[in-house]
């Protein structure tokens, strides 16, 4: 190799060494919540639907509690059972504090999810979980307010006839009724508990 190219190589290596030595770690504070946070938060869109407990269910009646809002359907084969299992485990991890948390499961399949069917399904996970249903137009308005997508699709299971592809995230609403957090599908119970505890702080 010629003297010139040897010098070039040495110069490049020195440059690499210099840059490496002078580099620094990334800056920035770690996130407080483990899920997605809205900033600034907005008031959670209000709704009044038929509750699985046989009474009208108004979102505003839960002011003072932290609300977990889930959109799904009882015949959901994959998404809803996983999310409800994670939330059930989160409730168990919370212990006594879970008394200040209310899960509301808003159906995206009102044709099949009657209040009775919702009660039966949800009580399998936690008897305190509440379902909500209503006329299709009313539910669609709620979906639109939250940005929830729900579309009917054919089901590989002929007995089910159809399934509903729907938003898989859940929403956390704080004690003051503000929509604060969106928890992506699959978030583990400990992470959900972490965020619930932050919202439960008075």
């Amino acid at each position: 190799m010629s003297r010139l190219s040897t010098r070039a190589l040495v110069a490049v290596l020195l440059l690499v060494a210099g840059v490496s030595h002078g580099s620094r770690a990334a800056s920035g504070a770690p996130p407080k919540f483990k899920s997605g946070v809205f900033d600034p938060p907005r008031a959670a869109p209000a709704f009044e639907l038929a509750g699985s407990n046989g009474s009208p269910l108004k979102l505003t009646q839960f002011l003072g509690k932290v609300v977990i809002l889930q959109f799904g359907f009882t015949y959901c084969p994959k998404i809803c059972p996983v999310t409800l299992t994670n939330v059930t485990q989160a409730f168990e991890l919370l212990g006594k504090e879970s008394a200040d948390v209310q899960l509301i499961f808003v159906t995206v399949d009102p044709a099949r999810d009657t209040p009775e069917r919702l009660r039966e399904y949800l009580s399998f996970f936690n008897p305190n979980f509440l379902g909500a249903t209503g006329p299709e137009e009313k539910l669609q308005a709620v979906n639109d307010e939250y940005g929830v997508v729900a579309t009917k699709a054919s089901s590989p299971d002929k007995q089910l006839r159809y399934e509903v592809h729907h938003t898989s995230s859940i929403y956390l609403i704080d004690r003051a009724g503000m929509l604060r957090v969106m928890v992506p599908f699959g978030k583990e119970p400990k992470a959900i508990v972490h965020d619930l505890k932050l919202l439960l702080e008075k």
Partner: peptide, 19 residues
Amino acid sequence: QIFGPTLIMPGQSFRLPFE
């Protein structure tokens, strides 16, 4: 706007961390 996985209001941000 429906932006990514969520509905975001005018002037609002959505901050999603990954661990």
